[in-house]
Amino acid sequence: MNLELDLLRAFVAVVDTGGFTRAAERVHLTQSTISQQIKRLEENVGHSLLIRDRSIGGAQVTEEGELLLGYARRLLAISAEAEQALRRPTAPKTVRLGLPEDFAGRRLIELLSGFSSASPHLRLDTVSGWSFELRRLLDNGDIDLALVKREPSDAHCLGRWPEALVWVAGMSGELDADPVPLAMFPQGCIYRQRATRAIEGTGRMWRIAYTSQGLIGVQAAVASGVGISLLPMDAVLAEHRRLTPADGFPEQPPSELALIARSPRLDAPARALADFLVRNVGSIQQGTPSDD
């Protein structure tokens, strides 16, 4: 038995309107097409469904037609419900954001959670990595936006924030060791490049005493006296001692945190996130809660 929806729709229209002519007007078909569809439906189910009543110019349902009518209405209603559901987005639109491995930690997550709560129609996917990795992901189209650490630059970006850098060491330990022991992030990190060049500029040598992929590891190594590091101001812990030029470590100009995009023409989800970050990233660096 083949219960085609178009045939059921014609059948219900004839019953509801009381005739073939008015049913044809309802479903925007010709009267002859409606008649052919009813005939096909009757052949499919093996029963007569309608009796033409020429005295009133209409049609009446048979017992089998009356039985089929309830099922036909339900099937058409389910079909309409499915069509409406499929027209709605099946999932929120996704925007993909790359984040520096060492940036802001919990405060940034709280900020992004606020964005997600305020934008339930968007899905936020994040990936953490070093800036050179995030640039590669951006170039490959794997992410839409990225917050990257870089030297101050006039290169195009959606937003930029200066990042104060300070030398830090443990509370005790020698500061005049040569080579200078460094607790650093992996190669390619802007802090590592800055630190090694600055020490070389003083005429001293350096050695990598400790390397960590994560900020917590570098912070702990510095606090325990394993090595000296150059970190952003907001990464300095109470267990750290800040070093100055008087200690033999030259003051460093700020680096830059920049928001960059995969394309100058952002779609609506990426633009919404970019605008949100431009308004709020500064509050994270200053350690103040966001109002958004």
Results as ranks from 00 to 15, higher is better:
Ala23Glu: 05
Glu251Cys: 07
Gln60Ser: 10
Ala85Phe: 10
Leu175Thr: 07
Tyr210Arg: 04
Ala82His: 12
Ser119Cys: 05
His156Ile: 07
Leu86Ala: 13
Thr90Asp: 10
Val236Pro: 03
Arg22Ser: 14
Cys189Asp: 15
Ser116Gly: 05
Asp53Leu: 11
Leu69Asp: 07
Asp102His: 10
Leu122Arg: 10
Phe185Leu: 09
Glu81His: 13
Arg107His: 09
Ala261Gly: 12
Arg197Asn: 04
Leu108Gly: 13
Asp16Thr: 09
Glu83Gly: 02
His240Thr: 08
Glu83Leu: 05
Arg107Ile: 04
Val281Ser: 04
Leu230His: 01
Ala183Met: 03
Leu137Asn: 08
Cys157Gly: 15
Ile228Met: 06
Val127Asp: 04
Leu86Gln: 12
Met184Arg: 02
Arg279Leu: 03
Gln286Met: 07
Val218Arg: 07
Val95Glu: 12
Asp292Phe: 04
Ala258Ile: 02
Ser128Ala: 14
Val226Asp: 09
Arg26Glu: 13
Gln84His: 04
Glu239Phe: 08
Asp125Ser: 15
Leu147Lys: 04
Ala82Thr: 12
Lys149Ile: 10
Glu110His: 12
Gly70Cys: 01
Thr288Asp: 14
Ala91Cys: 00
Arg271Ser: 11
Pro232Trp: 04
Ile284Arg: 04
Ser35Thr: 15
Ala246Thr: 08
Ser263Trp: 00
Ala274Gln: 06
Ala155Gly: 11
Leu124Asn: 12
Gln252Leu: 05
Ser153Asp: 09
Arg197Tyr: 01
Phe132Ala: 11
Arg194Ser: 12
Gly57Ser: 04
Val281Arg: 03
Arg135Ala: 02
Ala118Gln: 15
His156Leu: 13
Ile199Met: 05
Ile208Gly: 00
Leu111Glu: 06
Glu163Gly: 01
Val222His: 07
Pro152Asn: 06
Ser153Ala: 11
Thr17Tyr: 06
Val14Asn: 07
Glu163Trp: 00
Gln36Ser: 09
Trp167Asn: 06
